[in-house]
Simulated scan of single mutants.
Amino acid sequence: MTEFVIPPVEQASVAVAGSNARFPIRRVFCVGRNYAAHAREMGKDPDREPPFFFTKPADAVVPAQGTVPYPPLTDNLHHEIEMVVAIGKGGTDIAVERALEHVWGYGVGVDLTRRDLQDVAKSMSRPWDWSKAFDAAGPCGPLQPVGAVGHPAQGRIWLEVNGEVRQQGDLNEMIWPVADVIAYISQSVALAPGDLIFTGTPAGVGKLQPGDAVRGGVAGLGEFAFTVGARRG
């Protein structure tokens, strides 16, 4: 038995719909600007950009329910609703036509972003980590196994705040579909069971305030609801 000098952290995981079992999280990859309308609202040209990626810590994924804390160091916390892909079989240089064989299931999550910190990082050509990889930065609903939902390629994706629809689109609007995203990631790193992929967000990202009631979902994959917590201090 391995002896550790400090107690190891608990395995990060996400719930599985209709089961007491949980999906262990290894790494979290996120696709940037994967919907054309969102790319344009961020001032970019979706016709010229290949997919790019950033990451979040595994333990940044928290249940999309109850109260999700408002993070420190920001006055401009943004919501980004996304379909989440759970990898069940690893590999490198995965062919696009075989990529979906590596998917265990799908879910719905929110890429929370400290937009003010991201804007500063962009202006200074610095990494985005502080804007994307903070505590509780990835609220996520329960995962649905492929056997229950198939491989969603179309369907409504939406998010509302205090009853007002902020984001609404369709999965078929993704510039890079799930199979392409998996293939691209596997060219750079070895995907492994337990990896999650947040697949990008439609247009309409916006500011969250403490006390906001947030709801969202993807057709066929379920819905979530949480409240934004108070600022610290």
Rank of each mutant, 00 (worst) to 15 (best):
W158V: 12
A121G: 01
A95K: 14
Q209N: 14
Q144E: 14
L100Q: 12
P57L: 05
G220I: 06
T201W: 02
I175H: 04
A219P: 01
A136T: 10
N76E: 15
H38S: 10
P72R: 05
P177R: 12
A21N: 13
C140Y: 03
R26N: 14
G163K: 05
D75W: 08
V205Y: 04
S131D: 06
L77E: 11
A148Q: 15
E164M: 10
V84T: 07
I197P: 02
G43A: 02
E223V: 09
V61N: 07
A203I: 04
D129K: 12
K122V: 08
Q209V: 06
G169N: 06
P8M: 01
P51N: 00
G217K: 02
P71S: 07
G91I: 05
R115I: 05
N20W: 04
R232F: 11
T67C: 06
A21K: 13
E160V: 05
D170T: 13
F23N: 00
D75Y: 11
G155N: 09
Q187T: 14
N162E: 09
G105E: 02
Y70K: 06
R115A: 06
T113W: 12
Y106N: 12
Q168V: 13
T67Y: 03
W128K: 07
V61F: 04
K56P: 04
A15V: 04
F54P: 06
R156M: 06
W104P: 13
A219I: 02
D135G: 09
I182D: 00
L221C: 09
